[in-house]
């Protein structure tokens, strides 16, 4: 007569279901479908969908592309490490490198304009965590992930690394300006 004994009725499949239990199953079923639909609905009407555009690449190829943009659009450097601050034209392709233990370079973007942000790592995996926005994306070596971003608020943003990448992980913080 209990859950640790075999079912008392041999043909338990034919036992009627309690009314309240049945109502709850029906409610839970509908709610499951709503949540499933929500993800699809957001793909059609929502403005925050992570792009899946991805290419296989090499570290050398990606670093060269990033270097080309930096060479062309650098406006100044910051910090002791002379990190270039790059101001690319609105709508352009920008390349962000994650490596032990820095995000490189710093970009200065225009509010309300869309950029194609390419992400890749040079060694281990890294985690792109834009703060205080709280947008978090996994960054892989040998994969180039192309994400279209449209900054909607101006300010100074930090890019924290939130994928464990070794002993200096906590010093891996980058920056991004939106004006």
């Amino acid at each position: 007569m209990s859950a640790i004994l075999p079912p008392a009725e041999r043909l338990w499949w034919k036992q009627p279901i309690d009314k309240l239990e049945f109502i709850w199953v029906a409610i839970a079923f509908v709610w499951s479908l709503v949540m499933f639909g929500m993800m699809i609905w957001w793909h059609i009407y929502g403005n925050q969908n992570l792009s899946n555009e991805t290419y296989k690449t090499t570290k050398e190829m990606f670093a060269a592309k990033a270097q080309a943009v930096v060479d062309q659009y650098t406006v100044r450097t910051e910090t002791d490490q002379q990190v270039p601050v790059v101001k690319p034209p609105a709508g352009s392709d920008i390349y962000l490198i994650g490596r032990l233990w820095a995000w490189w370079p710093i970009y200065e973007l225009e509010q309300g304009k869309t950029y194609k942000l390419h992400l890749s790592a040079m060694d281990y995996m890294h985690g792109f965590s834009l703060q205080p926005q709280n947008i978090n994306i996994q960054v892989h070596p040998n994969y180039e992930h192309v994400v279209k971003i449209t900054p909607t608020q101006s300010g100074t943003y930090s890019i924290v690394c939130n994928e464990y990448c070794g002993i200096g992980h906590h010093t891996m913080v980058g920056r991004m300006y939106v004006k």
Binding site: V83, A102, S158, C161, H169, H170, V173, G174, R175
Partner: peptide, 15 residues
């Protein structure tokens, strides 16, 4: 972040 030793980012140039 999870798996992160120091939320004060000691030693980071751009904490």
């Amino acid at each position: 972040s999870r798996r992160h030793w120091d939320m004060a980012f000691a030693g980071a140039p751009m904490a």
